[in-house]
Design a protein around this nucleic acid. Structure first.
Length: 260
DNA sequence: TGTAACTTGATATCGTCGGA
DNA sequence: TCCGACGATATCAAGTTACA
C-alpha cells in the first residue's frame, strides 16, 4: 500500500506490464491511460482497479497525488480460502475498471492517514487488515469483482499476429510478450518466426520505426513527442536507430517537409 | 516443447557538438 | 540554455543450436 501525496512514483508511471491487480485512488490531478486499444481518463477523486496481466501506458496530464494498493495472488488466495469466496463471471474485458464513489470507500480512504509511516508505507501491523477491509468493501460495492480478484488462471494461447499488431509499441521484454500470448519463450520465438518470418526483436524495431516515420511525415509530430510512446527509451537511441533504418535522421524528414 | 549454453547484436548511458 | 544528433563502449537481452 503506497501513499504518493508528495510526488510521482516513477515505477508505476512507466511500468507497462501490470503484474498484480492494483487499486488506485487519484487524490489530485489528471491521468490518462492507454491499454493498446482504449484510452481511459481519470480525474481528481476517481477510483479504479487496474487489471493484472495487461499492458498499459500512463500519461500525467497535471501533477498527480494518489494512493494505490497491489493485490498479490498469494494474499488473494489466502483470503479466498479463509472466507470460501467463489469467483463469479465478470463481463467487462477492460484493463481499467472505474469504481463508483461510495460512502464506505471514501470513509476507508479517509481512515488511512493515521496508519502511514513517513507518509509512504502503512504500518506493517495493520497492512493485512487494511487490505482485507478494502477487498471486502470492493466486493460489497461490486460483487462481480470476485470474478477479477479470484481468477488465478494464466493467459491462454492467443492469436500472435493480432496481439503483436495491437501491442508492438509497448516496451516490454520478449518474456512478457510470450507470457501474455500464453506461450513459453521458446514457443513464442518459434511461432513468431512462423507468423512474421522474422525475429521478434527485429520485427518490433521495424514496426516502431515505420510508425515513427508515419507520425513525423504525415502527422507532423516531433521526435521528442513520440519516441516514448513507440517503445524507445532514449531519444538519442531513437534517432540513431531511425537513421540506421531509413538513412535519414528524424530531423532530416522534418527539414525535407519544410522545404517542400 | 522446454532448457541450457554459447554467440551476437541491440541498447543504455555518457559526453560532446552544433543550431535555434 | 535547450534540444537533437551522434559516437564510443559496456552490458545484457535476444538469437541460435543442440539435446532431452
Amino acid at each position: 500500500m503506497i501513499d504518493r501525496s508528495k510526488d510521482l512514483q516513477p515505477n508505476i508511471l512507466t511500468e507497462q506490464f501490470i503484474p498484480d491487480h492494483v487499486f488506485v485512488y487519484l487524490e489530485k490531478g489528471e491521468l490518462e491511460c492507454y491499454d493498446g486499444s482504449k484510452n481511459y481518463t481519470f480525474k481528481e477523486g476517481d477510483i479504479c482497479i487496474a487489471r493484472k496481466n495487461r499492458l498499459a501506458r500512463y500519461k500525467v496530464k497535471s501533477k498527480i497525488e494518489y494512493k494505490f494498493f497491489c493485490f498479490g495472488e498469494d494474499f488473494l488466495k489466502i483470503i479466498q480460502k479463509k472466507h470460501n469466496l467463489k469467483p463469479v463471471s465478470l463481463t467487462t474485458k477492460d484493463t481499467f475498471l472505474k469504481i463508483l464513489n461510495n460512502e464506505l470507500l471514501l470513509a476507508f480512504i479517509q481512515s488511512l492517514s493515521p496508519y502511514f509511516e513517513n507518509n509512504q508505507n502503512i504500518d506493517k501491523t495493520f497492512q493485512d487488515i487494511k487490505y482485507e477491509e478494502l477487498l471486502f468493501i470492493l466486493l460489497k460495492i461490486q460483487p462481480e469483482l470476485a470474478g477479477l480478484f479470484f481468477d488465478f488462471s494464466v493467459p491462454h494461447k492467443i492469436d500472435l499476429e493480432l496481439f503483436m499488431m495491437k501491442n508492438f509499441t509497448f516496451n516490454v521484454s520478449l518474456q512478457r510478450f510470450a507470457f501474455l500470448t500464453g506461450r513459453s519463450l521458446s514457443a513464442f520465438k518459434r511461432d513468431f518466426k512462423t507468423v512474421f518470418n522474422d525475429t521478434p526483436s527485429r520485427w518490433l524495431t521495424q514496426k516502431r520505426l515505420q510508425e515513427a516515420y508515419y507520425l513525423i511525415d504525415k502527422k507532423n509530430k516531433r521526435p521528442s513527442e513520440i519516441y516514448l510512446d513507440l517503445g524507445f527509451e532514449a531519444l538519442s537511441h531513437f534517432s540513431f536507430a531511425f537513421k540506421k533504418y531509413f538513412g535519414l535522421t528524424p530531423s532530416d524528414i522534418i527539414e525535407r517537409k519544410a522545404n517542400e
